[in-house]
């Protein structure tokens, strides 16, 4: 008979951040109910059990048996290539990203990255969210020159792009952003989607919110389980976790899509201007991104392998994407 498993699950984001941090709650609830008591998931808020930056190490060496975050937060240990599994600037949106992850070899590459770096973890993609807004500013940004010299909180590969344009970026945790803005340690920030940004208080200080989310067209999160814990679980327990994660992917996406408009409207009412990047600015971001990619590939061949695999898939996918979808209404040019 299988042994009961208690998955202690420290998470990277506070679970109060609906849509972003709340996914583990959905996952825990699903597993706790559907496993019939054979698995119990217990969530620990950020830093309560293990410092978030140490989560990967702690899960790998078995100090805690699972963790919930995204590879892009572990670039210090895994290299910048890890961020490809989180979000890619000008990269795939949710349906395409999931297609690559589940059926295009993405998931295997993600697992391989952990394995190659000596981490004893089993990774399960376990949530995805729609695009994030590309930043909150105190002033309008009309040209690349307006970005030069700014200090900004920025995540992932997009941070490299912003650095190219003269922005000094730092990767602050959610709770540190507002105080840093208040005290002038940073002038601008991106964090997540309007509903979550509102919870952190951005609209009160920063009145210019920029769209579209070129830097994170969609973001994937993963559950990591200690390798020994995973191998010790029965087939039925493993299947429960895997399918609960798939359900969580769906829920994260649906919830994120459902709750933003209300906050966008409220932001406008409280004096925030929503801006859509001009064609010039988007072109600037894109060409900077292309330079960044070239540099990252030159620095680290493995970055090139993973990015190449994603790009090959995207090339194949393009014909379908271009033919099947209706033109999308956007703010472009308005």
């Amino acid at each position: 008979a299988e042994d009961k498993v208690l998955l202690k699950l420290p998470v990277w984001f506070g679970t109060h951040l609906t849509g972003l941090g709340s996914s583990p709650l959905f996952f825990a609830d699903t597993v706790n109910k559907s496993s019939g008591g054979s698995i119990k998931v217990k969530i620990y808020e950020p830093g309560k059990l293990v410092a978030t930056k140490e989560m990967l190490e702690s899960v790998s060496n078995g100090s805690v048996n699972s963790g919930w975050g995204t590879p892009g937060y572990n670039t210090g240990l895994l290299g910048k290539k890890a961020a490809i599994f989180s979000a890619v600037p000008f990269g795939p949106e949710a349906p395409e990203f999931m297609a690559w992850m589940y059926y295009g070899g993405g998931r295997e590459l993600m697992q391989k990255l952990y394995d190659d770096n000596g981490y004893n973890v089993h990774s399960v993609p376990c949530s995805i969210i729609a695009p994030e807004t590309s930043g909150w500013f105190t002033k309008e940004i009309n040209s690349p020159a307006d970005l030069d010299g700014l200090r900004m909180r920025f995540f992932g590969l997009g941070a490299n792009v912003m650095e190219k344009l003269g922005v000094t970026t730092s990767l602050l945790a959610s709770g540190d952003i507002m105080p840093a803005l208040e005290k002038g340690a940073i002038d601008a920030t991106e964090f997540s989607m309007p509903a979550i940004d509102k919870l952190l208080g951005f609209p009160k200080l920063l009145k210019h919110n920029y769209y579209p989310g070129w830097h994170q067209p969609s973001t994937i999160f993963d559950l990591i389980v200690n390798g020994d814990t995973w191998n010790g679980m029965s087939e039925s327990q493993q299947a429960t976790v895997e399918s609960a994660c798939k359900a969580t992917m769906l829920d994260g996406l649906a919830l994120g899509e459902a709750i933003q408009f209300e906050y966008m409207k409220a932001n406008v009412e409280s004096g925030v201007t929503n801006h859509y990047w001009s064609d010039e600015m988007l072109a600037t971001f894109r060409s900077a991104w292309e330079e960044v990619v070239a540099e990252l590939i030159a620095e680290d061949p493995e970055f090139g392998e993973i990015y190449g695999a994603l790009n090959d898939f995207r090339d194949d996918y393009r014909i379908w994407q271009e033919w099947i979808y209706l033109p999308r209404p956007t703010m472009q040019g308005k």
């Binding site: 506070g14 709770g175 507002m178 105080p179 208040e182 009160k204």
Partner: peptide, 21 residues
């Protein structure tokens, strides 16, 4: 304000730190 404690409380209770300040 500014107070480290209020920052941590804002984070824990999911309320705006500026409102707390």
């Amino acid at each position: 304000p500014p107070s480290i404690m209020l920052v941590i409380m804002g984070d824990q209770l999911a309320v705006s730190v500026v409102d707390l300040f």
